[in-house]
Design a protein around this nucleic acid. Sequence first.
DNA 1: ATTATTTTTTAGATTTGCCTAAATTTTATT
DNA 2: AATAAAATTTAGGCAAATCTAAAAAATAAT
Lengths: 221, 221
Amino acid sequence: MHSQTEENYLKAIFKLLEKGEKKISTNAIASLVETAPASVTDMLKKLAEKKLIRYEKYQGVTLSVSGKKVAINIIRKHRLWEYFLVEKLGFTWDQVHDIAEQLEHIKSESLISRLDSYLGNPRVDPHGDPIPDEHGVFHTQNTIPLSVASINSSVIITGVIDHRPVFLRFLEKEGFGLGKKIIIKEKEDIDQSMLVLISGSKKLKHLSNEIARNILVLPEK
Amino acid sequence: MHSQTEENYLKAIFKLLEKGEKKISTNAIASLVETAPASVTDMLKKLAEKKLIRYEKYQGVTLSVSGKKVAINIIRKHRLWEYFLVEKLGFTWDQVHDIAEQLEHIKSESLISRLDSYLGNPRVDPHGDPIPDEHGVFHTQNTIPLSVASINSSVIITGVIDHRPVFLRFLEKEGFGLGKKIIIKEKEDIDQSMLVLISGSKKLKHLSNEIARNILVLPEK
DNA sequence: ATTATTTTTTAGATTTGCCTAAATTTTATT
DNA sequence: AATAAAATTTAGGCAAATCTAAAAAATAAT
């Protein structure tokens, strides 16, 4: 079995790989797991010995097949628990991250498989992030950042990039919850900010490009 | 905050106190937490410094008020999670201990209070053990071991003393689940074994005294 | 009341994960 | 290409929780 710490490192590496980078830097990992770079080096050696990552000094790391499996499983557990917390216990989407961060390390195959069925095998968590299935497969949709949606098009909010509670609460307050349908009415050349209409509502909302880039949407039809 | 290990020591001490002993021995704790006595001594010093226990060398330990509070809260969490695992996820009563042993250390007040309401504020866990309320109060019933129930009396099974999965599976297989009503038909002088009738069933079941002592019942009327 | 046994504690090490400071390597800049 | 800056690794240590072996204290047995 792997320690919680090992699992957190693998998850961090996976997230960095997912974000685009091919080779992952020590510093990037350090900032994700909130520890000193020197500690990361220690852990990388350990993970390499266990064949969970491929690692050569100064050259960055990548996940091995088994390391990737562990990482995906942690993400699966994290997202299933988040779904549980929101759908069954009534938490809001800005409150669940820290609790799921603990729950994701509970070790029991049968627990997760039962939880998955109990929840109805959800495909996405409360932030719209895909929940990998029991084989580690992500079923993703073709979403785009709201910032690149074309003018006059109609889109559905399916996720967020920024997961900070403060951002999530802002969206909630302004009516930009998951599943909401919006129409892009105007876009300023100067700063790429946009005026949008939330389906059902009367008044236009103004969104900076900074914010629009952090909202994922599915174009309609 | 306290470490998981500290929580486990406090829980162990609480359980020993609950079982009758006034002063708790190092060896008893060692066997409950499955560690060497020397390790227990180390931890006792640490817990005493934190004022969670009262400890004098060679004299055993007792819990302080704050230590007791921590212990009861861990037990509350353990039992609520066991209830969840059985009632919501469909586990059987012999499968939930090890998973709850992990879940009990998740730190979040709001999680437990929401879980408690979600489950309908249950009073007892799947083994019939009382679940302390949010103030740490146990609401107990006047149960007795089946072994001392009087002949021809009718009783309801409300709990078990032995929690080993092998014992629980035996009870389940023989039809002695929680809530079952049974009548004591005969009692052998020689070994105190008894013949009982499970309500609804036709044939008498034989129970050794050893087993009857590990079944808790509520006498009817 | 002495001796023997059991229990408990101390002493000294080990493992895991972390740290700071210094050294090394890589990358960027002139 | 040489130097400056940034990133990474090594070295040496620390804290938590554990262990074994040896010493000390408490309890039991003669």
